[in-house]
Amino acid sequence: MASIDIQHPHSKTPAQARKAVESMAKKLAERFDMDYGWDGDTLNFSRSGVDGKIALLADKLRVTANLGFLLSAMKGPIEQEIRRVLSEKFD
């Protein structure tokens, strides 16, 4: 099982950061049939083959995910896409 751990700085207010993460989660849910929900300042998401979290910290986001066997082979492209979306939403 492969894992992803990405930290991305941001300068948004907590409300702005939460709104941006919620927007990303909705798109992921529609595109990949993913379930998600908030636990405090952490958004948990899952679907077959992946379990992960996006933690909202004061000055950064931390994205962690465990990829199942089939998605492990796609770790590189998945990380690149996460970084691209984070740059788009938080830079």
Rank of each mutant, 00 (worst) to 15 (best):
P9K: 10
R18T: 10
W38H: 14
G37D: 10
D35Y: 03
A73N: 06
G68C: 07
I82E: 03
L70N: 05
D39S: 14
N66D: 14
S87C: 00
V50I: 15
I4Q: 02
R83V: 05
A25F: 12
L67A: 09
L71E: 01
K26D: 07
A55P: 00
S23H: 14
K27N: 12
P77E: 02
Q16I: 01
K26E: 14
G68P: 08
G68D: 02
D33Y: 03
L71R: 08
K26N: 04
A73G: 12
S87H: 09
T64Y: 02
V21H: 01
L86R: 10
M34Q: 08
K27T: 11
I78H: 04
H10Y: 11
K26P: 03
R62G: 05
L67F: 02
T42C: 09
A65L: 13
G49D: 08
A58L: 05
G49N: 12
A2W: 01
S11V: 09
L71K: 08
I82Y: 06
A29S: 15
T64A: 06
R84L: 02
N66A: 09
L67P: 02
A55D: 12
M34R: 06
R62I: 06
D33V: 04
S48A: 10
S87W: 00
D51W: 04
T42H: 03
W38L: 12
E30L: 08
A25Q: 09
F45G: 07
V21C: 00
A29K: 13
K53C: 10
